[in-house]
Amino acid sequence: MNVDHEVKLLIEEIKRLGSPGADGNVCVTFGTLFADDKCANIFEALVGTLRAAKRKKVITYEGELLLQGVHDNVNITLLKDDL
């Protein structure tokens, strides 16, 4: 799969699993994304897709690398819903 396609899929999953934050942007925790069965089936490398989306300024989150367990409560915020 190409990166842009995976980022578009990620946007849809964040919208599906997340909820609007105080600023109106949709937020979801890393743990929620990581534990979701549908996301597990879609994304072979969820962390890589998240990093690509962050580089494209589609999402934002604290830190560089998210690890399951350690960063389950880190909020991922959707900044825009298209590329």
Rank of each mutant, 00 (worst) to 15 (best):
G24R: 07
S19R: 11
E62K: 12
F43N: 07
G24M: 04
P20K: 12
L65V: 14
G18A: 05
R55P: 00
L46V: 06
K80W: 05
P20H: 05
H71A: 04
K38Y: 15
E12F: 03
G48W: 01
R55D: 08
I11N: 07
V7I: 14
T32G: 00
L65N: 15
K38S: 10
F34M: 05
E62H: 13
V7Q: 01
V3S: 08
N25F: 15
K54L: 02
I14L: 07
N25A: 10
D81V: 00
R51F: 07
Q68F: 14
D23V: 03
L33Q: 05
K54F: 02
T32E: 05
G31T: 01
I59K: 06
T60G: 14
E12H: 07
T29R: 08
G69F: 12
L33S: 04
V28S: 02
H5F: 13
L46D: 01
A22Q: 03
L46E: 00
G69H: 10
V70M: 11
L17N: 06
V3D: 00
A22W: 00
I11D: 04
D81N: 15
V26N: 06
I14G: 03
R16S: 10
K54C: 01
D23L: 06
Q68G: 09
L67S: 13
E64R: 15
N73W: 03
L33M: 12
G63H: 05
A45T: 09
D36Y: 03
V47S: 13
S19C: 01
L67W: 15
I42L: 13
G21P: 05
V3E: 10
F30Y: 14
V26W: 04
K56G: 03
A45C: 12
E64D: 15
P20R: 09
K80M: 11
D37Y: 10
E6L: 15
R51I: 15
L33P: 09
K38V: 15
H71E: 08
V7C: 00
D72C: 07
L17F: 10
L65T: 15
L33R: 03
A53R: 06
V28L: 08
G18H: 07
N41R: 12
L17P: 10
K8L: 11
D23T: 11
N25D: 12
S19G: 06
H5C: 04
V26G: 07
E6N: 04
T49A: 08
F43T: 09
V26R: 07
E13G: 03
